[in-house]
Design a protein around this nucleic acid. Structure first.
Length: 271
DNA sequence: AAAACTACCTGAGTGC
DNA sequence: TGCACTCAGGTAGTTT
């Protein structure tokens, strides 16, 4: 499910319900997600949520007992619920809040993570090696050019590598490459600085536009209030195999790169 | 060092 | 209706 826009949408949705609230209760209904839920997670009980932030696709909620780190994986979602709402299958974790509401973590595939991190979260192994934020000032064409230099790896794989730039997943990698007119299988080291400038701009533009629309609901992503995101209708190539390119009418093609589907227009995107 | 592959897990959809 | 199979928004870890 979630790439950066969906995580940001989730953050904006849950933050007003969380920040300033005391955590009355921590409910662990399934102890192991991608990793075991931190054994000391109950030490959050009685703590106030002081802040809510995002780093890449990680959500960070700061408290006196440490930082609650949540990753949504492929199928995770957070939802603010009334406590008398019946638990759904795959509701694995929840916080009972002073407001009387519950924040529930739902994740059928259990690729997500719920961890309590002590000390500076930026120093945590999961966060320390992440690349710059794509919407921040450090993600520039010069930076990307340096990271691509000499690499034979496909440009698509490079922009999906969270250690190069964080938050760009399969949907937005396909979309941004289309917008920049770059063939997804092109060797990263062969893409000119000028074209990388367009790519950086395209990544920023597509992520910002999707955030504006509440993210992309492909199958099951829902916001904290149960509403879908509306960016799917704006997708240019993703999940549109065989359909006409919105620019030139050529049929959109699908290819498989490192086990993931890539969608592209063979006429608009050149090597 | 970089590139390719594996693993984790459930559910939806397809074809027989 | 059921079975076997493929595919799905992520990414750490292992192997080549």
């Amino acid at each position: 499910m979630p790439e950066l826009p969906e995580v940001e949408t989730t953050l904006r949705g849950v933050r007003p319900h969380l920040v300033g609230q005391v955590i009355r209760e921590v409910v662990v209904r399934h102890k192991v997600l991608r990793w075991p839920v931190s054994a000391d997670i109950h030490s959050l009980e009685g703590c106030k949520v002081e802040e809510g932030a995002r780093r890449g696709k990680y959500l960070l909620f700061g408290t006196a007992a440490g930082t609650l780190l949540i990753h949504l994986g492929m199928s995770g979602a957070l939802r603010v619920s009334d406590p008398d709402t019946p638990w759904r299958k795959h509701d694995h974790f929840a916080l009972g809040l002073g407001s009387g509401k519950q924040l529930r973590f739902h994740d059928p595939r259990r690729f997500g993570a719920v961890l309590l991190v002590h000390g500076d979260p930026a120093a945590h192994p999961l966060l320390a090696e992440l690349g710059p934020e794509p919407l921040g000032p450090d993600f520039t064409a010069a930076y990307l050019h340096a990271r691509c230099a000499g690499r034979a790896t496909a440009i698509k794989a490079v922009i999906m590598d969270s250690h190069v730039v964080t938050g760009v997943g399969n949907i937005y990698a396909c979309e941004a490459l289309f917008m920049a007119g770059i063939h997804p299988a092109m060797a990263a080291g062969k893409v000119s600085l000028k074209r990388l400038e367009r790519l950086v701009e395209a990544i920023r533009e597509v992520l910002a536009a999707s955030i504006e629309m509440g993210g992309t609901t492909l199958r099951d992503f829902l916001r904290e209030n149960g509403e879908p995101g509306y960016f799917k209708q704006t997708l240019r190539v993703y999940d549109r195999e065989g359909e006409p390119c919105r620019v030139c009418g050529t049929a959109v093609r699908r290819l498989v790169q490192t086990g993931r589907s890539t969608f592209y227009c063979p006429a608009c995107q050149k090597r």
